[in-house]
Design a binder for these strands. Structure first.
Lengths: 216, 216
DNA sequence: TCTCAAATATACCATTGAGTACAATACAGG
DNA sequence: CCTGTATTGTACTCAATGGTATATTTGAGA
């Protein structure tokens, strides 16, 4: 079943290029903050082209979000499975890979998902888009959680006893760095933060026991 | 020089009450996301009243932000100076006091400043308001930094060697928890995150030395 | 070269955004 | 009980928003 090519005027723009441009606008401004005027200007197409290629603002946003996940999120996780590498190093590389992206001057600062997810709570994001954002946010948390559950070294260190908690700690740190990045804090400053969090996690078993005693 | 009372129709609403209502709208929606229609509806006044009491949207936002700082931010810091209390406990109480506020159902989720600061990067916030937000964000970081510099126990533990770094770590964690709170994560889940970060910080001197060796 | 579907450009629509003009109203001082 | 002043309610302005109708181009197939 081949694609039926029905003749007509040829498209002047590349869909992927336009999508990337749209993604960067959403990344900088959020869903609500990004206007169609600015979107189409950056995409270098006009509104009717946008509407009959992508559907509407929400559909464009969903495709842009998927583009972000594929191109700017998935890549980092390879660091987690690097063979012959201590878990601490793999986690640190993973975290810093993300932090460096958050701080990069090549792209908008911070994290696309963190920014837009915070709009969801405001209630101004359409249902389907909100669902995608929520699902996308759950992914890295699950990835880390599974790592702690299955990784040999993690089990040896006892980190598998609280997979979810440890994953939440790291993910929360990354949300924090995303916010800091947006305020123009440098990735080298944030490296200290990541180190602190990892140190805390790796000395968890003893430390948490003592902290429980400390609190009232 | 007394206040000259020139007679006229009496104001029907209380300025502070209206301001608090406005603050909650900004807290939930951000500066751009909060429309005058919604603001005035929640403040239970109409637009002309709002304009001749507060000036305009930006002026209202600035007053609402100051209201937030006074009523929802300053109070937490007393925990930092509680006498006869170990530093670890004081920090934990401080952090959890903020986290509980972020997760409270009595108010919008997350942190007013984190949400609005992220809009600043988008460029849609007027200059004066943006300056206030930036200044407000610097405050807790400075507070923590000074604590690490001057507190006897902090000095004993060597935490004064990197005041800024340690302050940044804690503040970044709080920005992270603010974002998580907005995604409806509970304060009890986030307590584990705070514990992890504090543990990391308190075992900093040794840990950071070893982590430097670990990375590449 | 004629045809016709698909893409473009321009102009438009309804709604909502921030901000205002103005008349009606309420209140203190004389 | 007037008079003047400040607040309120309604109705407006003007620009920007998401989304479309329509006419004009383009190019592959017959």
């Amino acid at each position: 079943m081949d694609i039926i090519v029905v003749s007509g005027r040829k498209r002047k723009f590349d869909e992927q290029t336009a999508l990337q441009a749209a993604m960067e606008v959403f990344w900088a401004k959020g869903f609500v903050g990004a206007s169609l005027a600015e979107l189409t200007k950056c995409m270098k197409i006009n509104k009717p082209s946008m509407y009959n290629t992508f559907g509407n603002k929400e559909a464009l946003f969903i495709k842009a979000t998927q583009y972000y996940i594929e191109h700017n999120l998935t890549s980092h996780s390879t660091a987690l499975y690097e063979p012959n590498t201590p878990l601490h190093t793999r986690l640190k590389n993973y975290m810093m890979s993300i932090v460096r992206m958050q701080c990069s001057t090549e792209q908008p600062k911070g994290c696309y998902l963190v920014l837009c997810q915070s709009e969801v709570a405001g209630g101004d994001i359409p249902t389907d888009a909100a669902a995608l954002l929520t699902e996308a946010e759950a992914r890295p948390k699950l990835l880390l959680s599974e790592l702690f559950r299955n990784d040999k070294e993690a089990i040896l260190l006892g980190l598998h006893h609280n997979c979810a908690g440890n994953a939440l700690s790291l993910y929360t740190a990354l949300k924090g760095t995303a916010a800091m990045a947006r305020s123009k804090v440098s990735s080298s400053d944030l490296e200290y933060v990541i180190d602190t969090m990892l140190t805390g996690m790796f000395s968890a078993s003893e430390a948490h026991a003592s902290s429980v005693q400390t609190i009232q």
